[in-house]
Design a protein around this nucleic acid. Structure first.
Lengths: 258, 258
DNA sequence: TTGTTATTTTGTAAAATTTACTAAATAAAA
DNA sequence: TTTTATTTAGTAAATTTTACAAAATAACAA
């Protein structure tokens, strides 16, 4: 979606391919070396930053729509992805502030007030987690920028997206105790210290350095390798990999981490 | 919404007052004397039973829409109400089976295929809990029956409503440990045995008769009264009431029950 | 008035889990 | 060989959960 013809077609005929009045918004959390970030985009049409999002094709499921959106913004497929809440309070989208001239300047298309895009929209929130160092943030056709922001240094977001981030973060932190996490976020082979740091960062709190790795091991998701990693003048830590079968089973059936 | 004029107006002009393409569906759980039921409705237009639901007014929030719907079906206001998931997979509503003649027979209105009601719809699922003995089930204008069904003796439901009930029940049972429950479900003054039975029934499992009441008390939501209830040739149990302040605080901030 | 009975309620020991802390093992570099 | 920072195993204390026993009780019948 980039050429002017495509933009025009989306604006004028999008309602035939997408479900009107419903969108998805994605809180994409990015982790790397003990840093937690969120991906934001800057609309051409709007002043501030907001969460990436989009419409749902009439032929795809909600999860597919969210996955497509996350893929388009980060270039990464098949992330851990969860629906967390639908947002639909009237006034959340500020459609009353519609400015035909501005739309024309930005899109090059004459948009009238009865266009399918200019109407009340209910948005379904998803969150995803990825390794931000592997991603290539890419704006969509309606936005001019797309970048990672530190989780505790976010700008004021547009619409109800502040609340969305808050809810997404809360849900993510609760679900960390009930789903396995780490795949795609850690190197193929990793140390207990690395996965410990991952959990600490995502949860935003300290976890006992001696007990937490034991709890992780007790879940039975990790396989200990006969290899160690050299980390300078210190004891070399063992390397681990995820047991893919146990991991996928845990994704389906859930786990309990205390 | 009952007269023919109102039905006709809803079908022909509803898209002006309601948000098209989005609906809500409510799994309304009913409790009374150790029985757990679900409220189902039977559409005039559709063969089997399904969850009650409806559209969202352009002026109301999602929760208001759900509450209005629950109120219309049960006659009871202000129940414990929670959003649990949005459902939007294509094909879930079977709009391809649209039958103009049948719609006319049922509604007395000539509905064409481009009507706002005949299109892909994404539904936001809410669940609620009420005392079914106090409710007066009432069909909506599109349905011919509305009745309580035993939770473990449900008929096969239409659309994706089997999955909705399953998800609603699962979410409800998880949230029972994180929100206070019992208000409106028990008499104003109740015994520990009664609230114990409530939890057992909603959770669908046994809870230790000696330890569970202690856990409940530990939450600090109950006030012990200086009254007892006569229950025949047995020790008279104490009566309790909810501490409204603590209860409301717990509703907002959550509790932890083990 | 006194036992009988079923239920409520308190008490407590055992079991299990979590937490806090100690110390041994280790590997590279000085 | 010693130093050093980190990994990792071990364990005792603290806490929580569970299981079970027994006391309290109130209506009724004898």
């Amino acid at each position: 979606m980039d050429t002017q013809a495509e933009i025009e077609d989306f604006i004028l005929n999008g309602h035939l391919r997408y479900v009107p009045h419903v969108s998805i918004d994605c809180a994409i959390f990015g982790y790397h070396e003990q840093q937690l970030k969120v991906l934001l985009i800057k609309h051409k049409y709007i002043e501030g930053w907001c969460l990436p999002g989009g419409y749902i094709k009439r032929t795809e499921t909600l999860v597919q729509a969210a996955n497509r959106n996350v893929m388009e913004r980060t270039g990464i497929n098949n992330l851990f992805l969860q629906q967390f809440k639908a947002f639909g309070d009237p006034g959340r989208a500020r459609i009353n502030e519609f400015d035909e001239e501005k739309w024309f300047r930005v899109t090059g298309v004459r948009v009238t007030k009865n266009n399918w895009l200019i109407d009340q929209t209910i948005s379904i929130g998803f969150y995803a987690i990825t390794d931000f160092s592997r991603s290539v943030p890419k704006p969509d056709m309606m936005s001019e920028d797309c970048a990672w922001f530190d989780i505790d240094n976010l700008p004021k977001l547009e619409f109800d997206h502040d609340e969305m981030v808050k809810e997404a973060l809360h849900t993510m932190r609760v679900q960390l105790y009930h789903y396995p996490i780490g795949y795609n976020l850690l190197p193929e082979k990793f140390t207990l210290t690395e996965i410990h740091a991952l959990y600490e960062t995502l949860l935003g709190k300290k976890l006992d350095i001696s007990n937490f790795p034991k709890k992780l091991m007790a879940l039975g998701l990790l396989k200990k390798l006969n290899e160690k990693r050299s980390i300078g003048p210190h004891r070399s830590p063992h390397l681990y990999v995820f047991d893919k079968d146990a991991y996928d089973k845990a994704l389906k059936e859930g786990v309990v981490l205390s």
